[in-house]
Amino acid sequence: MDGVPPAGGSERLLFICLQGLGNLILAEPAVRAARERHPGAAITVLVRRRAYLPLVARFPARVEAALLEPATVARLAARRFHVSYTCFPANDARFDLVTRLLGARERVGHRYPLRKRLRLPGTYTREVAVAPVDDVRQNLALVGEGLAATAPRLRVEPAPGPAPLLGIHPGSSTARRMGLKRWPAGHFRALVGRALEEVAGLTVWLFAGPGEEELAAGIAAGLGPRVEVIAGHPLVEVAELLAACTCVVANDSGLMHLAAAVGTPTVGLFGPTDPARTAPAGGLALQAPGVACAPCWPLLDVGRRPPCPHEERLCLVRLTPDQVWAAVAPRLVPHPAAAVA
């Protein structure tokens, strides 16, 4: 079955990473820390989407990847892992169920102040309290105390591309109100137009995930041949294309974290979400000034996403293209390739 490694090594460790792309990337430093602490261990990372398997293969720790499906769960349970780590955020009884089915001898997870669904008693043999820190540190706390936080990394070689090259990701997941994280399309279009006017020879790549092609095409319409929509590529190729960019501007999304993980200077645009949790590693998180209700998705009450009470999403509408351009302009200079060997 896909990604299930042969048994081996003195220890068998399992990372259960069943969230989205960004969450998987933010778990990478914890996987790397486990490899450093247990160099001879057989480490498996369990993911929920087949598209993520090649990305796990690009983790510097060189672990194995497994896809969540019934046959894989049975095979992994038979491996009798010594320790499983249920990565953050997992504020849902479905994560508890998978953890219990996999049946590691020691099962490590978080203790959440607010549970979204009924807890399955006895799931974890060790619980770590959710702390007011970023997601990288939340995951590191599962592996051990006092571990130094490092930025997520992927082993990626940049694709060939023009220079200077501005990458834009105007989308995000729309599941569970996450579409509320999107900066207005008109703002993105104004930013691209300003960049083309200000930077001689600039090329702009508009990255579109599944279902985002129309959004990207609408932003690109009429802006000329130096604006190209990038869609339909496997995630590893997307990572290589992001690594070729001089700078990337994105909503708080998986592609934002992917760009940061391959070493590209990244500007993240934040509205309801809290950059204290998910700012792009090594990059810049921008928020609209003077919006008292933002961020409204609490750091500690993970999974609580109240609807916006305003007709306009003030936290994003009031973050102007001029403010974003002021942050992007100095980053549109060539940067050395940051691929991890």
Rank of each mutant, 00 (worst) to 15 (best):
S10T: 14
S10H: 11
R12D: 06
L13F: 00
Q19A: 15
L26D: 05
P29D: 01
A42H: 14
A57T: 02
F59I: 01
R62W: 00
A71D: 14
A71W: 04
T72F: 08
F81Q: 04
C87P: 01
F88K: 06
P89K: 03
G103W: 06
A104L: 04
H110K: 06
Y112N: 02
L118M: 10
L120D: 05
G122W: 08
V128E: 10
V128K: 14
R137A: 15
G146L: 12
A151G: 01
R155W: 02
G161Y: 11
P164H: 09
L166Y: 12
G167E: 07
G171T: 08
G171R: 03
S172H: 13
S172Q: 03
S173K: 02
T174D: 15
A175L: 14
M178T: 14
P184G: 10
R189D: 12
A190F: 01
R194M: 09
R194C: 02
L196D: 05
A200Q: 15
L202G: 13
G209W: 02
G209D: 12
E212S: 06
L215K: 14
A216N: 10
A217Y: 07
G224C: 06
V229K: 10
V229C: 13
A231P: 00
H233N: 06
H233I: 03
E237G: 06
A243W: 01
V249Y: 07
M256G: 08
L258N: 13
F270W: 04
P272S: 08
D274S: 14
T278M: 06
G283S: 09
Q287H: 01
P289A: 14
P289G: 14
C296V: 08
C296H: 13
P298C: 09
L300Q: 13
H310T: 00
E311Y: 01
L314P: 04
C315E: 09
V317F: 01
V317Q: 10
R318P: 02
L319C: 13
Q323P: 00
A327N: 05
A329K: 15
P330K: 09
A338L: 07
A338D: 00
